[in-house]
């Protein structure tokens, strides 16, 4: 039997909604398991990509330095990198902060807001720093495919992965293209 396709997934500045939607393929996951195995993913709790991953599914945009590191790890490890969902593709909901200067966001959250005690900007070196703006992932690495939707439906994942697995150029018919 040929080697299984290695799939890695992650959520950057996203809500895991795309992952939940992926799991909505329901019992088809058994078929998927026949041909694919999961590498780094919240589904496996594996924390690092192995060297040669076939497909990386990235949910969420880039809002901080850690997101950038994770995305780069995916790009380096994955033959095919896929932007999954509105946030990965255009920044999505998190990008709605983009018209507010970061200073104001931080001041409002940690210094000036009602009910803040001991106001200070968190500065632990363990914490990732925020980027000035939230960016979609194609602005930082090359992306091979895009699966739009908030979230993309389970059928989108299914169509895309089965296309790839059977060597077809992935394509989405009209009913599966949604930006919401």
């Amino acid at each position: 039997m040929a080697d299984k396709i290695k799939v890695a997934t992650t959520s950057l500045a996203g809500c895991f909604g795309c992952h939940m939607s992926f799991l909505d393929i329901d019992e088809r996951i058994l078929d998927l398991a026949q041909i694919a195995e999961f590498d780094r993913s919240p589904l496996t709790d594996i924390k690092q990509c192995s060297d040669h991953v076939d497909i990386g599914l990235v949910e969420g945009g880039l809002c901080n330095s850690e997101n950038v590191h994770t995305l780069r790890e995916f790009r380096k490890s994955c033959k095919i990198l896929v932007a999954v969902g509105a946030c990965a593709i255009n920044g999505g909901l998190p990008a709605m902060r983009n018209h507010i200067p970061l200073e104001e966001c931080l001041e409002e959250s940690y210094l000036d807001a009602v009910g803040v005690e001991n106001p200070q900007i968190p500065n632990d070196v363990e914490l990732p720093l925020l980027l000035n703006k939230v960016h979609p992932i194609h602005e930082v690495v090359k992306v091979d495919y895009f699966l739009p939707g908030c979230p993309p439906s389970a059928d989108v994942f299914w169509k895309f992965l089965t296309d790839l697995a059977s060597g077809r150029e992935p394509s989405l018919p009209y009913e599966l293209v949604h930006y919401d």
């Binding site: 509105a86 593709i89 999505g92 979609p136 602005e139 989405l172």
Partner: peptide, 29 residues
């Protein structure tokens, strides 16, 4: 941001995007 827009599903910009099989915005925002 289609997911948070009341017009989503009834929007012509979005619908043209669907019609043309536009899957991403390609350019920097």
């Amino acid at each position: 941001f289609c997911p948070s827009c009341e017009k989503s599903g009834n929007c012509q910009l979005q619908a043209v995007g669907y019609f043309l099989n536009m899957l991403d915005a390609h350019f920097p925002f």
